[in-house]
Write a protein that binds this DNA or RNA. Structure first.
Length: 560
RNA sequence: GCCCCCGUAGCUCAGACGGAUAGAGCCGGGGAUUCCUAAUCCCUGUGUGCCGCAGGUUCGACUCCUGUCGGGGGCACCA
């Protein structure tokens, strides 16, 4: 519907230009069709007459009058178009057009809401990518849900999307982790060794040490850790990764690929990319013998070391190679979902991408702000190293998968929010997600009941929607028809939270409708024409809600 | 010191490109169920929401610019 209004406005503007009212060159590409907040202002409104007034050197209202004079509505979908306020033009779409349009939902079914804006483009969303040094905590949950929902949104608007987890399985943290295992293992074997400072103290290491001992016995107690490092790090890393995968699976997050940083090292990609950039002159060797990437050439604050004096590459070096590798795989767009603590890292990665000859616009960094946990008014500090954190698993256990996902996805990712754990646990049954799910269940049960009484959802040709004359019914139709637009705009701003708000509004309208007419104009009644039309409407609503929930990764129960 | 994000109702948050009277949910009070699910609905609440504050741009600013205050985060040869 939005598109049809846009077409009318554009055609009208062209007609205006033909009559010399405005210059065609002044017509913006984006016509700013909006939905008025107030119902009296009609179904759609445009502000183009206000914006064009200046260039046309005309009074906005006068221009709007000219606009109406040349109104192009060949399909005759408009009921009214009028000037309002300083120069708005409000449109009211004919009711039969609205009703008829509802058939789109039934025609498209699960494809309703999808579009082709991203058709032919491949995008890679890389997210979570938490170091495999401990279980996922609540903060990671936000990154996981955000990344997953954004990926789904992009897929819904036609992109071919892959989800990827980058495993930082190289470096000092791995080393410390391996030693944490080693020492715990030694302690289990009865050896009195102190637990080193700054190592992973979390309780989760103990069962891993036990499993390790169960597997290898006491034979490695006296190993020299340094020479046997890989043995320990691999064991604990694999174990932790398995746990991470399990938590994510439970959250409904599945990756197409788990990409190991080590594989980049093993394939010699770091050396290669460094050599290439050296040849290009963007990496130079300094007086101390370090190789430095001159990211300042691309707008970074300072140059960044990629190969240390001792020849060991930095994490950044791996990241350059990783991004190069990602783009080489043929993605048109790469989205990295990072916690806000990494924001300082953006300029150098952008610089790297640019130095590699890739348009930095093809790399998008989506930051999500931290979740600050509050328990009974007290701030809960989180640290993997000290083992103090609320795990994602516990949260899932306490509040459930759907509420957890919804909690994260209903907030704009770049706003910080306070998560009250005690409140989340005690009030989990009041969560907005259930409001929406209940609405879905209610729709299903109405359809179910109708079926039991011999009323199926009518076919497209047989249904007569003209009997849907109640104001609430038209409101519902309009809202349902808004869905594709909501999906596109949510996708373009990478903001899945818009879907949640939309769902609440849609379901709210339905609950109101349902309750208001529970005694008078029920869906299933003796009036067969009304019953058929209303079942058609309910089924359309069910489709919209179910599609939207699927997009968010939240289940759509048929009964509750 | 420099950089990034946030600041909207008592609380948690929306507010798409600058537009008409800035919205939800939660919380408090009252009511609705012989009838498609009451995990729902309806009414209502104290609060004149100085949209953190002060300027600026504009016909018009919660939205854009500058400054300022408050909160969070960053400023590694850690990942």
């Amino acid at each position: 519907m939005y598109r049809r209004i846009e077409a009318i406005v554009r055609a009208t503007l062209e007609a205006c230009a033909a009559h010399g009212l405005i210059a065609l060159g002044d017509v913006p590409r984006d016509l700013s069709i909006e939905k008025p907040k107030r119902k009296e202002h009609g179904d759609f409104a445009t502000t183009t007459c206000l914006t064009l007034a200046k260039a046309a050197r005309k009074n906005p209202r006068e221009l709007a009058a000219g606009f109406l004079l040349h109104l192009q509505d060949p399909e005759g979908i408009l009921d009214a178009a009028e000037i309002a306020g300083p120069g708005f033009v409000n449109f009211r779409v004919r009711e039969p057009v609205w009703r008829e349009s509802l058939k789109q939902v039934a025609i498209l079914q699960t494809a309703y809401g999808r579009s082709h804006e991203g058709a032919g483009k491949r995008v890679l969303v890389e997210f979570v990518s938490a170091n495999p040094t401990g279980p996922l905590h609540v903060g990671h949950g936000r990154g996981a849900v955000t990344g997953d929902a954004v990926a789904s949104l992009l897929a819904a608007v036609g992109y071919s999307v892959d989800r990827e987890y980058y495993i930082n399985d190289v470096g000092n943290q791995m080393n410390i982790l391996g030693r944490s295992l080693f020492v715990r293992y030694q302690q289990l074997c009865g050896k009195d060794v102190p637990f080193p400072e700054n190592h992973y103290q979390g309780g989760y290491v103990l069962p891993i040490a036990e499993a390790f001992r169960a597997k290898v016995g006491d034979s490695h107690v006296d190993d020299d850790y340094e020479t046997n490092r890989r043995f320990f790090t691999d064991f604990i890393k694999d174990d932790i990764l398995k746990g991470i995968e399990k938590d994510l699976e439970r959250l409904g997050v599945r990756f197409d690929r788990w990409f190991s940083e080590r594989s980049l090292h093993d394939a010699g990609r770091l050396q290669k990319v460094v050599a290439d950039l050296e040849a290009a002159g963007t990496i130079t060797t300094d007086e101390a013998g370090r190789k430095v990437f001159r990211t300042t050439l691309f707008g970074d604050d300072e140059d960044r070391v990629v190969i240390r004096e001792n020849g060991v590459p930095t994490y950044f070096a791996a990241d350059i190679a990783y991004h190069q590798e990602k783009f080489e795989r043929g993605y048109d767009l790469c989205i990295d979902v990072w916690g806000a603590d990494h924001h300082g890292y953006i300029p150098r990665v952008k610089a790297a991408v640019q130095a590699l000859g890739i348009d930095p616009g093809r790399l998008e960094i989506l930051l999500y702000q931290f979740v600050s946990l509050v328990e009974g008014g007290e701030q809960v500090r989180m640290s993997t190293r000290t083992g103090q954190f609320e795990t994602l698993e516990d949260l899932l256990e306490d509040v459930g998968e759907d509420a957890t996902r919804c909690t994260f996805v209903m907030r704009k990712s770049d706003s910080q929010f306070e998560f009250d754990l005690s409140q989340a646990r005690t009030q989990s049954e009041d969560h907005p997600v259930f409001y929406v799910q209940y609405g879905h269940a209610r729709l299903c049960q109405v359809l179910e009941k109708a079926k039991r009484e011999g009323h199926g959802v009518p076919t497209l040709d047989s249904v007569d929607l003209s009997v849907l004359v109640l104001e609430e019914e038209l409101d519902l139709i309009k809202k349902a028809l808004d869905y594709p637009f909501v999906v596109s705009s949510a996708a373009s701003v990478r903001g899945p939270h818009h879907i949640v708000f939309y769902l609440q509004e849609l379901i709210g309208l339905f609950h109101t409708y349902y309750s208001k007419y529970a005694h008078t104009e029920k869906v299933v009644s003796a009036d067969l024409r009304k019953t058929a039309a209303r079942l058609f409407l309910c089924d359309a609503l069910r489709i919209v809600v179910s599609n939207a929930l699927a997009l968010l990764g939240v289940s759509a129960p048929e009964r509750m």
